[in-house]
Design a protein around this nucleic acid. Structure first.
Lengths: 211, 211, 211, 211
DNA sequence: AATGAATGAGAATTCATTCAT
DNA sequence: TATGAATGAATTCTCATTCAT
């Protein structure tokens, strides 16, 4: 099922990713991509058929991430549900930060009235995540760790919305907190830690505090 | 400073808004806008100079909202800081839900590496909001209502990210919660109430709970 | 129903006609047409929407011919059926020779497995002509002028096939008959006369001779 | 002189023939042909050099037909000239019907202002046929079977034009005569018989009737 | 002998904008 | 003030062909 891409194709996909993140899908021309990827213009059609199909390829290239490790963890009897949730949070943050470009693209694309392949893919990712989280939460509720009446979609929106917003506007965050002196790497670490603490705190409040 | 627009111009701006929200800025052609607004194609260039300038016009048309009422409230000595914060939350939710199209556009545009007018405008909105919130929080801290060490940008990211994400993906929310039978209006009310409760709970946790 | 075209449009249509006749529809680029018509490349899309639509326009521009005069003649009680048929023949030859380019295009296009507008238009022309002829023939049969058992489609194929083939290969005809010394105009006249005599003779044989 | 083609080449040529007949030469891409022939794309260039050369190959592959049997018949002293002519007619019909695709292609290509190989080939075929027919007719005239003053090119145009037109538009013919219930094979036989009768009748009229 | 990968040239079309009126 | 007509530039994509292997 999972397509594998050769070096040239990956080169193209990753160049496209950067550009789509910077200028949007429609704002990026196939010419731009060819130039950035250092390949012949026609090669993009040759390999992917069309610009749309290239976007699809990008989604299947990036879409696989995350799944497996989390699903393994779910059955672990030694971890508390809250620990599991915190692991999920860290995994999600990790993903968003590792795939910043792709996250931007997804964030943008999900807002449009898409009907195509990507819309379906985004929907499926969402659903899969939703199901994972639901199971986790219901487990926690059964064990008495989590309170009843949790609005999962809202909770997810907080996870996704907060992480993506802060990453998308990280230069504001850096400026406001006077972190320009930090190296890029250190800043990323710093932001990641802060974001992790913040979201864990929020989730604790959502999952355990009585009204 | 604030430009006023005539009927034709507003017609154009609002048509553009809907289309930009649906199909993105680059995905919308000036022709589309002219058609939707029922005006002559050339009139758009005539009135706004260019498509970019039209986007700017949209931002200044929609950007004004919110400011004043909140600024008046700030000085009010009879309200607790938490009440004020809750009012801000409701105001923001209100804005996002009333201006769903515009919110989508902003969400999309803020992600791009813009260098133009809109980037500046978005930055200024953000800054103004940030300052408002900062004042409010520092007041609360001074009065002992709020705890120390609050990461304001992260908190803002949660407000903005959660609200926009849930609005942008409201059809998922509706489906998952089996709310298709509600009228559109009732669904909006329902979502708004839930979102308000959710965010207020989160803010309470952020602002008052000890680690 | 009948669209009217402005000067620019006619200029484009007629340039396209010549080129389509010379090099075929697919062998002609929009660029070629624009050049020949001395108009901007984009104007063709502007006026006709697409190359296909331009072909349609050509067909409706040229397709009207012939109809009316013949239909008037049909009711004429003073003419014999054979006279009427001879008039039809002359009209058809006239049309093919006046619209040589268009005739070539039709001849080519009718051979393809078209499914679009032009196929429908050709079919309708054929049908209309067929009906006209059928009425004429049945009249003649009722009056005892024509014999029974006439295969009308075959007869039509002879009319259409002979006229178009001779026109399409007129340079052979000219060469073989050593008519290069004639002026173009005189040659056309000559060919027309010969073709007319030939077809009338054939039709007389078809319509009146006993087996 | 006559090239022989190996299996792969014939596979390619015949696939090309079908496609050229369906969609025209310019409407058919080398990719289409490779796909239909189930061969590698590059093999077409490899074997034939270019698309144009492939068309030439098709013409020499199909062009040989007919010649020999007819030339043998010419010298036969036992047949009347009219019998010979009828044999030629049947042979031609046979050829057009057996090589329907190729006939369509020839019909289309002869209409274009070609200057290349195919134009020459078509011209030579025409000339050869013309000469054959001329000899036959002059024989008949010498023997008193045929009348004087026969316009051979016009007569040929009737043979070629009628046969090709009826074959190219056979679905009309079938529909109009309500022959949809016949099997394809039976319909072909029916059409062939009718066409043969029709043309023989016409030729008799041309060749023998006094004005 | 055969082919997968690659490409330059050119295809049709759409775009935002301009300009004469 | 408003607009129909027009256009240069850029878009995506397809094409026949080549070439290293």
């Amino acid at each position: 099922m999972t397509t594998t891409y050769n070096d040239k194709q990956i080169q193209i996909i990753e160049s496209a990713e950067t550009l789509f993140a910077e200028k949007g899908f429609n704002g990026t021309s196939v010419r731009d991509i060819a130039e950035k990827a250092n390949v012949n213009l026609a090669m993009i059609s040759y390999y992917f058929g069309s610009k749309d199909k290239l976007l699809e390829a990008l989604f299947s290239y990036r879409g696989e991430y995350l799944k497996i490790t989390l699903e393994n963890m779910m059955g672990d009897g030694t971890m508390s549900s809250m620990d599991k949730m915190n692991t999920v949070i860290d995994h999600y943050i990790d993903k968003v930060m590792k795939q910043q470009c792709f996250s931007r693209i997804m964030m943008r694309e999900q807002v449009l009235n898409h009907t195509g392949f990507t819309a379906k893919l985004i929907f499926e990712m969402k659903k899969r995540n939703q199901e994972l989280i639901s199971r986790l939460i219901h487990d926690g509720q059964r064990k008495g760790e989590f309170r009843k009446n949790i609005d999962i979609p809202l909770m997810m929106a907080t996870l996704i919305g907060t992480a993506n917003t802060i990453v998308a506007t990280q230069h504001y965050y850096r400026e406001i907190n006077n972190l320009q002196t930090l190296s890029d790497e250190d800043f990323q670490k710093h932001m990641k830690k802060k974001l992790s603490q913040h979201l864990k705190k929020l989730f604790k409040a959502i999952l355990t505090h009585e009204e």
